[in-house]
């Protein structure tokens, strides 16, 4: 889940009586699973919320290149290096689709980028954690992409057409990412004692941050209720987190790795695992900018943007000259 803590614009779900005629027609389309397209009328709050959500998701894809890029130059085999390069390339591509989807709502990619760089917009908390050993690359694919898929699969049915279509493309690639991550960590778990130690260390550090990706409980949130009524949020955070835990525990068992939660156990009655909530005060610290890597991540993105200005300016100027020459020749 690459969009978390998205503040839904507006004051909550309106009753049909409170809605204007336009709003009622809009809600009827959503209820009938008819996609909203860029030229269709939409409430300002729907538009604003979607820009925040899609923008944050796009930023997450971009910043998410950094923790994985951290290991590309140290990948242990040519094949692992190629797989990781392909994955990071996909992520940049996902960023591109999502920025394009956001642009259909009337905000430019440059505007969104500026908001990321000066801290007005966020990216997923998970990318503020460091990748410290090679098994972390496996853990990122297995747990982080695994958690992202939980959210993104239902979002393929989201009400906004361009977002839904971006999600359909993204989900195809994400499931490959998750499989390669699981395969990479499986190799480690089945490997030498040092490799097993790396795999366990990665799981220890990424487990709770992965659970945090779904965001704090929002079952009583009026904002979430509005986003759900608009079908830009499909499940509650707790539902997705539970689904993720239920899926991941048997996978960890298969690997012979221990999830760092002594209270984790199967609850026969509920048909789900009971588990310990992450430390939400840590989560809010990370969101506020105090995660282990916030400063470095944002500095890296700002440096790339600032160092690249002459390149963007140069290419734009060249395009302008070419147009001018073409006009002069005509």
């Amino acid at each position: 889940m690459y969009a978390q803590m998205i503040k839904t614009a507006g004051t909550g779900v309106k009753s049909r009586e409170e809605m204007t005629e336009q709003e009622r027609a809009f809600q009827d389309k959503i209820d009938a699973d008819i996609k909203i397209e860029p030229k269709d009328w939409m409430p300002d709050d729907y538009r604003a919320t979607l820009i925040r959500q899609i923008g944050q998701h796009a930023h997450s894809e971009i910043v998410g290149q950094l923790p994985e890029g951290n290991w590309i130059t140290r990948a242990p085999t040519l094949e692992r290096k190629a797989i990781l390069l392909a994955k990071v390339q996909d992520e940049a591509g996902h960023g591109l689709y999502l920025y394009c989807a956001a642009e259909t709502l009337g905000v430019s990619r440059d505007e969104l980028t500026e908001m990321l760089l000066d801290g007005r917009m966020k990216y997923s908390s998970i990318f503020n954690y460091p990748t410290l050993n090679w098994a972390d690359i496996g853990a990122v694919g297995w747990l982080v992409d695994g958690a992202a898929i939980m959210n993104q699969v239902p979002l393929q049915r989201t009400s906004y057409g361009p977002y839904s279509r971006a999600m359909i493309r993204i989900c195809k690639e994400e499931s490959f990412h998750q499989r390669q991550g699981y395969d990479a960590i499986r190799k480690m778990a089945e490997g030498t004692p040092e490799q097993r130690k790396m795999a366990q260390d990665a799981l220890n550090r990424f487990w709770y941050p992965a659970l945090m990706m779904f965001g704090p409980s929002d079952k009583d949130s009026v904002h979430s209720a509005q986003s759900m009524a608009w079908k830009i949020k499909i499940n509650t955070n707790d539902e997705l987190r539970q689904k993720f835990v239920d899926q991941t525990v048997p996978q960890a068992e298969y690997l012979g790795l221990t999830i760092p939660d002594p209270d984790l156990k199967w609850n026969e009655e509920r048909g789900h695992y009971d588990f310990t909530q992450p430390d939400w005060s840590e989560f809010f610290d990370v969101i506020k900018g105090n995660g282990p890597c916030n400063t470095d991540r944002l500095a890296a993105r700002n440096k790339a943007w600032d160092d690249g200005r002459w390149v963007r300016d140069g290419l734009l100027e060249h395009a302008r000259k070419k147009r001018a020459r073409k006009v002069a020749a005509e």
Partner: peptide, 19 residues
Amino acid sequence: VSEWCGHAPVLEEDIALAN
């Protein structure tokens, strides 16, 4: 070329360099 990953001047270049 892979050292550029995540640090290129524009997203399209990140993709092209990784490719």
